[in-house]
Amino acid sequence: MSTPLLEELGQLRSLVMAHRYRCTGEAQLQSALAQVLAGAGMSFHREVTLGEAGRIDFLLGHLGLEVKVEGSISAVTRQLLNYAEREEVHGLLLVTTRSHHDGLPAHLRGKPVRVAVLRGGLL
């Protein structure tokens, strides 16, 4: 079953995956993603504090986008669970270079989660 939220999340994932990123770390990847999002005319906020849940890398309306180039699946899952608890977050996209992050559940706290694994990693 498809909903507008799932479609929006899928489109965001497709947009991210349609580009090649030549970066040397997470900060450069975040900057490159900001350029891709801006180039697509998408409105977003960077480094948004979500109370005690921490600071998410991007907030696009009600979709959260988190970038990870390191970290265990359990640490990333805990972080995304914290974001999913927030009322203002309706769905999450994890952008990562780690194929093992692709094992995240499809939903956290009842909110859809998608993963965009950037093949080839970073330079």
Rank of each mutant, 00 (worst) to 15 (best):
G10W: 02
L108P: 15
E87Q: 14
L29F: 00
Q28V: 06
G64V: 05
P112H: 09
A75H: 06
V117T: 13
R86T: 00
R13K: 12
R114F: 14
R86D: 04
E66Q: 10
G25L: 08
G121V: 10
T24E: 09
A27V: 15
V113K: 10
L63H: 06
G25F: 04
H107P: 05
K111E: 10
L37A: 04
A18G: 12
V48K: 09
Q28L: 13
L15N: 01
L92I: 09
V48M: 03
V89W: 02
S43K: 12
M42I: 06
E7M: 11
T97M: 11
S31L: 11
G54P: 08
K68T: 06
T97P: 14
V117L: 05
M17H: 15
R119F: 14
S99Q: 15
Q79G: 10
T77P: 02
G41C: 11
H101G: 11
V67G: 01
L6R: 10
H90I: 01
M17L: 14
G39R: 01
V67C: 07
V95P: 04
H101M: 15
R98F: 14
D57N: 13
G61P: 05
H19S: 13
L80M: 07
R119G: 09
G39I: 01
L50R: 08
G110S: 10
G71E: 03
R46E: 08
V16L: 13
L6V: 08
L12V: 00
A84T: 04
L92Y: 05
D102H: 14
V16H: 01
E87I: 04
A106Y: 08
L15T: 05
V115L: 03
E88A: 08
A53S: 09
R98L: 14
V115R: 04
L29V: 08
G25A: 04
L118K: 01
L93P: 06
C23R: 10
A34Q: 03
P4Y: 02
